[in-house]
Simulated assay, not measured.
Amino acid sequence: MAGQRSKLQEDVRFRILRLLQENPEISQRQLAEMLGISVGGVHYVLTMLVDKGMVKLGNFSAAKDKRRYAYLLTPRGISEKARLTRSFLKRKMDEYEVLKAEIASLQEEIDLGDDLAADTRNRSGR
């Protein structure tokens, strides 16, 4: 269970870093909506990323509300995002291989069932 939780937390960090790199002015509320987690959860992760020196806060100068921030990835944050990207991609490729094998197995079951049904129809003269 702890391993699964760790993977989920890593995925959230990866997705936040990715979204921040694409749009530094994104709000915590928008991040929460895009990730399907609470605003408090996003705030917690952002605070951790800032504390670890992966993200720095800058004022979003074009905003009327000067409390808005731009979240800028630091060189350390860019390196962490690259590491998380590799890890995320490997995990997804592994999941894909397992899913592909399961799909092939299910297809074989369907094909076998179709063959058995055809044999039964042929023997009964239909």
Rank of each mutant, 00 (worst) to 15 (best):
Asn59Trp: 05
Ala62Ile: 03
Ala118Leu: 10
Leu72Pro: 00
Leu17Glu: 08
Leu8Val: 06
Arg123Val: 04
Met34Gln: 14
Ile37Lys: 11
Ile16Ala: 07
Glu102Lys: 14
Leu116His: 06
Phe14Met: 01
Lys92Val: 03
Thr120Pro: 00
Leu35Met: 03
Phe14His: 14
Asp111Ala: 15
Val98Asp: 12
Glu80Ile: 00
Met54Thr: 00
Leu8Lys: 09
Gln28Pro: 00
Asp111Ile: 13
Asp119Ser: 14
Met54Leu: 05
Val55Glu: 07
Arg13Phe: 10
Ile37Asn: 08
Gln107His: 10
Leu49His: 02
Val45His: 13
Gly77Ile: 00
Gln28Asn: 12
Ile16Glu: 09
Val45Lys: 08
Pro75Gln: 05
Lys56Ser: 11
Lys81Glu: 10
Leu112Arg: 14
Leu72Val: 06
Gln28Cys: 03
Lys90Trp: 05
Leu84Met: 02
Leu99Thr: 04
Ser105Asn: 15
Leu106Glu: 14
Arg18Trp: 11
Glu25Leu: 05
Val39Met: 01
Lys64Asp: 12
Met1Arg: 08
Lys52Phe: 05
Glu97Trp: 07
Leu8Ser: 13
Ala118Trp: 10
Asn23Pro: 00
His43Met: 04
Leu112Ala: 13
Glu108Arg: 10
Gly41Lys: 02
Ala2Lys: 09
Glu108Asn: 13
Leu73His: 00
Leu116Asp: 12
Ile103Gly: 07
Phe88Gly: 01
Gly113Cys: 04
Arg123Tyr: 11
Glu80Leu: 00
Arg86Tyr: 09
Arg76Cys: 04
Asp94Tyr: 01
Ser105Arg: 14
Arg67Leu: 08
Glu97His: 06
Arg18Asn: 11
Leu17Asp: 12
Asp115Tyr: 08
Ala104Val: 00
Gln30Leu: 13
Val39Asn: 03
Asp111Tyr: 11
Gly53Ala: 04
Met54Glu: 15
Arg29His: 04
Gly53Met: 08
Lys90Gln: 07
Gly125Gln: 04
Gly3Val: 09
Arg29Thr: 09
Ser6Trp: 06
Ala2Asn: 09
Asn23Leu: 03
Ala62Lys: 04
Glu22Asp: 11
Ala117Val: 00
